[in-house]
Amino acid sequence: MTITYAEAIRELETLLREIEDDGTDIDSLTEKVKRASELIQACKHKLRTAEETINQVFKEMEEE
């Protein structure tokens, strides 16, 4: 997935506004919810791996 965390969050916020808006039809609502779920999963994954990556980087620095 090439989308960045910030982009994902921005898209999530947009989706939230669109879902709140009653003008959106139900058919596209399902698509949007599905998309939001994907984004949330991706962000969660990024958050988990980010911490690990940061720790790894500092570990490497200490080893030098």
Partner: peptide, 19 residues
Amino acid sequence: QETYLTQLTEKMKCTIQNR
């Protein structure tokens, strides 16, 4: 970020349910 994401997720759930 996690907190925000959780909030966002919760809000998303609520919004969807409300809708």
